[in-house]
Amino acid sequence: MSQSAILTNRKPETGAFFQRDREWHPKAFTPGYKTSVLRSPQKALISLDNTLSEITGPVFGHNILGELDNDLIHNYARPGESAIGPRIIVYGRVLDERGRGVPGALVEFWQANAGGRYRHKKEGYQAALDPNFGGCGRTITDEDGGYVFRTIQPGPYPWPNGPNDWRPAHIHFSIFGHGFAQRLITQMYFEGDPLIPLCPIVRTINNPDAVSSLVAALDMNSTTPMDSRAYKFDIVLRGRRQTLFENKREGN
């Protein structure tokens, strides 16, 4: 089904977005995560009421997707081969703060391989590359905001921050909703990982509930028996203000 077919059944949204809760998100300056020290703006952000420039955004049609884009086990693998590691399905919904599914959202994801190694020339970790694993995938949400992809569970990896800092296993997510102001990048963690509370990047977030919302739940009812375990990860984008009553000014 094409994106436009989804959108024609739904009135285009033109409201401004709810204000971002900047106490809930990580602050810019988080010295425990050392790289943030020189990369965090020091002056106050300037509040800007959403204009058309913020409430609009591009549309990504399903026609951009290849058949294997949401299958990281196979999208980089040689024919007949597959990536090494514990096979998992990651699924969930992209919702807005009003609890409504966001259809047509572009969801992109990237991750290390099962040994915790990224396919990147700047990578400094010695774990082996998997010749059949690239580490990127993408999909577009369905009419209810649902998405699903298949991959291998990434490994944790060490990184140069403290002398012995390890990232918990994680998958990076980029989500493109309907308005440019909804643009979001985050990371998904795995239920039960003991490295989560130790991680300086996780700890850039102060609110424990905000951290919990990044931890995907193991869902043994959505597994594929003798094939894949499943993890559920819902993502919430900013909601839009509803126009309950028109408040038109003279001359508009």
């Binding site: 809930w24 998100h25 990580p26 703060e97 990371q187 977030i205």
Partner: peptide
């Protein structure tokens, strides 16, 4: 209302 998913660095 739901809370927006917290951001993490890219």
């Amino acid at each position: 209302r739901l809370k927006e998913t917290a951001s993490q660095t890219a």
